[in-house]
Design a protein around this nucleic acid. Structure first.
Lengths: 350, 350
DNA sequence: TTGAAAGCGGTACCAG
DNA sequence: CTGGTACCGCTTTCAA
């Protein structure tokens, strides 16, 4: 009965709920004089329709400006073309590069990136994830390995490919691509010690909410230990990211007795701010104070003196993460963990 | 008949297509001993269900870890919680900031950002848009006003709020928020001329594919005109964005006869590269060559000499765009065009 | 306050 | 090569 009604009324009679300017597959089918399923088939497996039909449908699609409804398609097929990605901040250069990497790869495979940002809070991350999981994405890329229990639980239960990026977790949820923040910080600390610096400061965000900073701090401490230098908590400063913050931090260090002879900033932005402020104050870098950074952002190579830093292939991390998602979906077996490494870039600031 | 079957078999018998680990609303309903519709109602209008039912459903949801399927919901209600955004590059600082702005605002209203990047090509932009329109987003934010005809057509036909950002188009597709690239470049050119520079170079990308660069170029030319300085096409260089590119451009300008006495770079990155290279080559800035930038990125304030540039509130642009989308959806009337202005920031490089 | 039935716009399986 | 039918998981009338 119901189907007969649909038929006789072309199935659109009841569409009074709201104006629907977008053409549907039904409209295309009618326009082309074929059945709806034929249109679907043309879109999905063009080889299985006759040349004549192909032409008819093609014309109808063009004329109507038909855009397939992925929402309906996704629901029907239980398949999604969304890859979702969660980072602390979109506008931080290092994350933006990773996003670009993921986007580049998944776009090429017909997926789109649904973006969320957690502002570095695990609670917000959990909320974002819930919301994003509502779209039943084909995969999830998430920054770091520091998540709430429920976040992890959701991710496991969702049974979709998950890639944690920017770190190498001990127990990854699914897959991971990153580098050892610990080793990178250790390498930098060793470098500073080899240069003869003994009283070395460390700048980071709150290690309790940022697993990568926590690991860098650990690497820093190991470096000190190795050299028999006592760890001095007073030399470890916490601050939000930023150049302006870096300027202020310099003054904090300057007021210390005795002053440090070097500072390892866990981000180039702080280092750049400190160097700029040193110039203003007439403090010699690295003669009076050595300053090291992390990430090798644009700023590191053009500021004077150029910043000694750790280079990490952020874009590559994104690309790898995208690839791992796509390959997993395609049913190919994929590495559980990819270490992209890092590079100590020695310049003039140390 | 069909419904009877559904009932007697709990509606899940035929679910053999694939393993479905995600709980559905149906599962929640069964678990709570209520009908499916009651669960839906609880989620949508909690005030309309009894206290007892509320408790039952709440428990079932928690126990099952149920996450509402937005795909199905969106299809049924013809409503979307996706705002899509298209920019040339995610990883360019200026776009990343705008993305963050949009994301911050729409997130707070329960929307998520679906991201696309066009690599600056109108063809790719069109392709991205088609794909993104497949999700029937609630709104679209798109960088610039330089689109293909079909892109514009699609956007108009889609009948959803559209905001073009970063520029003030003469004939916006829907709404727009930005600033006058022409006026900004004019202001900078006037500044350079007022400083006494006469032979002023200009660096941009291809104006044919970037409407903002085109307008900056026009502003630059107007500035020259006003001062009675003849426009010399040889002084206008095209280049991809980047610091390394800036270094190379310096050498191009140095090889000119006569050399320019100032260069207006339509992006700080070029300016930073040029300044850094000048330092290496022993060229005085601004004594031998004045260098101006655009965007006031981080780099501009810490490099020595600090870069004279144009500050544009990118994050604010994103926020406004997000707000305009959300307000439009809510049925409130919204400005068609928002001018966020710009600011000439005079530093030491000119 | 609660429920039944009819879709939303497609896709998958099976038959013709 | 083409079409029918039964859903995908949820929301929206309309009744009860």
């Amino acid at each position: 009965m119901a189907s007969a009604m649909n038929k006789s009324s072309t199935g659109n009679v009841k569409r009074t709920r709201k104006a629907h300017p977008q053409a549907s597959m039904h409209d295309v089918a009618r326009h082309a004089g074929v059945s709806l399923i034929t249109v679907s088939r043309f879109l999905r497996t063009p080889g299985k329709v006759s040349e004549r039909t192909r032409q008819l449908v093609e014309d109808a699609i063009a004329e109507l400006g038909y855009v397939p409804n992925l929402v309906a398609g996704g629901l029907a097929s239980s398949q999604s073309t969304i890859v979702s990605m969660i980072v602390p901040f979109v506008s931080h250069g290092v994350f933006a590069e990773a996003i670009q990497g993921v986007s580049d790869v998944v776009d090429a495979h017909g997926y789109n990136v649904l973006l969320g940002h957690s502002t570095g809070s695990v609670e917000r991350e959990e909320a974002i994830l819930r919301s994003i999981l509502g779209y039943r994405p084909a995969g999830v890329v998430i920054q770091g390995a520091n998540h709430s229990e429920r976040t992890v639980e959701f991710l496991r239960k969702a049974a979709m490919p998950v890639v944690e990026i920017g770190t190498l977790p001990e127990t990854p949820i699914g897959m991971a691509v990153g580098y050892s923040n610990h080793q990178a910080a250790l390498a930098m600390t060793r470098h500073l010690i080899a240069r003869g610096y003994r009283r070395i400061g460390f700048v980071g965000t709150d290690p309790a909410t940022n697993d990568r900073i926590l690991q860098r701090l650990a690497g820093y401490r190991q470096g000190l230990d190795e050299a028999g230098i006592a760890f001095d908590p007073a030399l470890v400063l916490r601050s939000p990211f930023g150049i302006v913050e870096g300027r202020q931090l310099l003054h904090v260090y300057r007021s210390m007795q005795p002053m440090p002879d070097a500072v390892f900033c866990a981000s180039d932005l702080w280092a750049a701010g400190m160097i700029s402020e040193c110039r203003k104050q007439g403090i010699g870098v690295p003669t009076d104070l050595a300053i090291a950074g992390f990430n090798d952002q644009d700023i590191a190579s053009v500021i004077d003196p150029a910043i000694t830093t750790i280079r990490v292939p952020r874009y590559e991390i994104g690309r790898q993460a995208g690839r791992m998602i796509v390959e997993t979906i395609a049913g190919r077996s994929v590495e559980r963990m990819v270490d992209v490494g890092f590079e100590l870039v020695v310049r003039d600031s140390t």
